[in-house]
């Protein structure tokens, strides 16, 4: 496990590179979810990175600009800057690994960023979308509902009523809100990947819409439901990925194919 800073001098990104247990020509870039879900998923990402490197992949996990240990304050992170960071991180993992092919794994909003990278110049060996955010507007509504409840529980209801400049403990200005709400993975340029897998705890209509859209681009897309134990399945949607061992096993099995391809 090797922590590092990379990227431009005034816009450095923090990442952790996990070298493979044996020589390999395949790398995996892990894309964290949005900052509101970062802390809850960090441990799971470390476990996933360790597990994939043991399987023989080069792995890089990294923090977007304005998140985690990367440069920038929390109010400067936008979907566009996160997308640019995914491209920077792809270049970095290629430099570190000399890998021929790179696969992307993204969770929630990180899945949206990974998918957008594959419609903006990058072609992935595999694109694994884990509980992906497909429509930004639905995602913002979901986080807003959680934020409203959190403020109620923490006794901030009167203080925050009518305010829309923060979301779940982070700045969320009008520009970031508009850009996030505008995300729609079912429109735009064709996706470039050899294969797409959507992993989720339940199959929903937006997953099918995404599969149909990607298959129209000629990319084989599989929707896979991961069965969770009751104690995980009973949790809120945003918490399930952070708790699931089943998803880790599924991801490792899915990416194993790229080692021999």
């Amino acid at each position: 496990m090797k922590p590092l800073f990379f990227g431009e001098a005034e816009r450095r990104l923090y990442g952790v590179y996990h070298p493979p247990a044996r020589p390999s020509r395949h790398a995996v870039l892990l894309c964290y979810p949005g900052m509101q879900e970062y802390n809850a998923s960090h441990w799971m990402f470390r476990r996933l990175a360790t597990s994939l490197s043991r399987e023989g992949h080069h792995v890089l996990r990294f923090d977007y600009f304005g998140t985690g240990d990367s440069d920038g304050e929390s109010d400067v992170a936008t979907p566009a800057s996160a997308l640019a960071d995914v491209h920077t991180a792809i270049r970095e993992v290629r430099d570190l690994s000399r890998a021929r092919e790179v696969s992307l794994v993204g969770l929630r909003f990180g899945a949206a960023c990974a998918a957008m990278a594959c419609t903006s110049g990058f072609s992935a060996r595999q694109l694994v979308l884990w509980e992906p955010v497909i429509y930004g507007s639905a995602y913002v509504r979901e986080l807003e509902a959680l934020d409203e409840r959190r403020n109620l529980v923490l006794l901030h209801a009167t203080r925050t009523r009518g305010r829309r400049d923060e979301l779940l403990g982070f700045p969320f200005n009008a520009e970031v809100r508009a850009a996030t709400e505008a995300v729609d993975l079912t429109i735009g340029a064709p996706i470039k990947a050899k294969r797409v897998v959507v992993l989720s705890s339940e199959q929903r209509s937006e997953h099918r819409a995404l599969r149909d859209w990607y298959e129209r681009s000629g990319v084989p897309t599989e929707l896979r439901t991961v069965q969770e134990p009751d104690e995980v399945a009973g949790r809120r949607l945003r918490e399930r990925p952070m708790l699931s061992n089943a998803v880790l096993l599924e991801l490792a099995a899915e990416l194993r194919g790229s080692l021999v391809g």
Partner: peptide
């Protein structure tokens, strides 16, 4: 504190199970 009453009403009177679960 008005916030406490608001929380109590939402959780107990209006039966907001999500808020109660979160608390």
């Amino acid at each position: 504190d008005r916030n406490r009453w608001e929380r109590l009403i939402r959780m107990r009177v209006l039966g907001d199970g999500e808020a109660a679960a979160e608390a």
